[in-house]
């Protein structure tokens, strides 16, 4: 649904986006992560045909961003970094205006607007002037605007940044639901938990370059190594590390726990359990230590900065 190949954007002498390639199939979510000024918004603007790339090419919903900009924009719903509402208008007028711009029929724009406002809990605010909306309500209305014409592709810049937890969940649920309906999403966010939760694929951009890209599990394996397992015993047990050293390489340990990495948990974990119980030690838990996108992100950025990877990598 979105195919970008070596998109590059230069502002005067500043290289904002440097040969960015992305591939987002229909019905999937890509989270574009990166520090402020990394080139996320510029990439989104190029995919929305607001900015023209200096080189490279891309298609969105099958349309070329250089040759068919109006067609691309018709297929895309955009939530911009700043919600940018017309504060003197009422929500109903605002959505009607955008519905007209997208040439929706009168009944259709009314129906879509009401459905979406209801979906995001804004029905009571339909006749309120937008200047009176709270920050979160404005963000939700901007999202409603982006979805109004039922676009197959949604480009969302920080979709839940100003929202309370309940509203943020509403938005995440909406994204998941739309994804099932074969909608394609590109989300830029600083909320790594949200990105991990929603995205099928992560791309990390820094200084205009994509420095890592793939599914979370792939990135985790690549940058923070194989999953770490933790074994906890019922009571402190001296010499455990030594007794299992031929099976696993213990990375860290305490009085009643050890952590190790394994590429083959299916054979190593049962063997380890057998060994430990054979030693008469009661096992409380054997579980993987969860890896977070934050770990991956920080490691990717650290490596890109030229800081040598620490010993945790690999396995």
């Amino acid at each position: 649904m979105i195919e970008a190949y070596e998109l590059t954007k230069v502002f005067d002498d500043f290289l904002a986006v440097d040969r960015v390639s992305l591939s987002i199939p229909a019905g999937s979510v890509l989270a574009l992560l990166g520090p402020n000024g990394a080139g996320k918004t510029t990439t989104v603007r190029m995919l929305t045909c607001i900015l023209a790339p200096n080189s490279g090419r891309a298609t969105v919903a099958g349309y070329d961003i250089i040759e068919q900009p109006e067609r691309v924009r018709a297929q895309v719903g955009v939530l911009t970094e700043q919600h940018g509402l017309y504060e003197r208008m009422k929500a109903v007028e605002y959505l009607d205006f955008f519905g007209r711009v997208y040439r929706l029929e009168a009944a259709e724009r009314r129906r879509r607007a009401l459905n979406l406002m209801e979906r995001f809990g804004l029905t009571n605010a339909l006749d309120k002037r937008l200047g009176e909306y709270s920050k979160g309500m404005k963000q939700k209305l901007a999202l409603v605007r982006a979805m109004l014409h039922n676009p197959p592709v949604l480009l969302l810049d920080e979709p839940t940044s100003a929202m309370d937890p309940h509203s943020a969940k509403l938005v995440r649920d909406a994204i998941i639901e739309l994804q099932r309906d074969e909608r394609t999403f590109l989300i830029t966010t600083h909320n790594l938990t949200e990105a991990q939760q929603l995205a099928d694929k992560i791309a990390i951009i820094r200084s205009g370059r994509i420095i890592a890209s793939g599914a979370f599990e792939e990135l985790a394996r690549q940058f923070v190594g194989d999953p770490v397992m933790e074994l906890r015993t019922a009571a402190p047990f001296n010499g455990l590390v030594k007794d299992v050293s031929d099976l696993v390489t213990v990375e860290s340990s305490g009085d009643d726990w050890i952590r190790y990495r394994t590429t083959d948990p299916y054979s190593i974990n049962p063997a380890l359990l057998r060994r430990v119980t054979g030693l008469g030690v009661d096992v409380v838990t054997l579980a993987p230590v969860s890896q977070t996108l934050e770990d991956v992100y920080l490691q990717v950025v650290k490596e890109d900065e030229g800081v040598p990877a620490n010993g945790e990598r690999g396995g």
Binding site: R73, A74, V101, Y102, L104, E108, R112, L178
Partner: peptide, 14 residues
């Protein structure tokens, strides 16, 4: 939320 296709969309076609 999944809804029927919108009838008319401004595609900017010449």
């Amino acid at each position: 939320m999944a809804s029927a296709a919108v009838k008319t969309v401004n595609t900017g076609t010449i």
